[in-house]
Amino acid sequence: MATKSKGRKKAPVKKPGRKPVPKRANGKNAGHDLQHEIEQLLYRQAELLDSQQWQAWIDLFADDGVYWMPPEPSHKTWEGMPAIFAEDKNLMAVRMKRVLHPDAWSQRPLWGTNHVVSNVQILKDAKDELQVRSRFHMMELRRDDVRHFAGSYTHHLQKTKDGYRIKVQRVDMTNAQAAYDYVLQVWV
């Protein structure tokens, strides 16, 4: 028989694997100049991908920088874990050289991407490290087929005398768990 629940609190509805919407660093608005500088960096990164300037894209990373795309949002590290991408600069160089090789057969058809990056939020503004969250949408054309990939980027940026360098770029793709119609050949 059903009874009235005695003040039983409803557990907060938690979507699996979703983190709460992060607050800005110290609850304050980051300075306009900094916001602008970071946005320009993210736009430049997207532009380099879409214009296929791979080496310049790799150069945005710190020497020990890592590009990481976990297969699901609950993953905290790429160490010892399955990953869609987990590449240091050496592996990035392998990927670039492969794509540029004249005998990379899969690279012969018409292929191009278009990234849109938005919702740029500075999550943490420490002395020499910044943490930035943004959202992306990438459309890809290969032969006559269009695919869409979208999700969030989390950039850990290191301040250097030549501007910011990427220590870690985490890519949480909304469709990371979906079946892939063909594969991803370069970074998203």
Binding site: P82, I84, F85, A86, S106, V183
Partner: peptide
Amino acid sequence: NLVNSPATLVNADDLE
């Protein structure tokens, strides 16, 4: 990760 992930450096050319 290197051979069998959806971002494989290997299977792209097989599938093509």
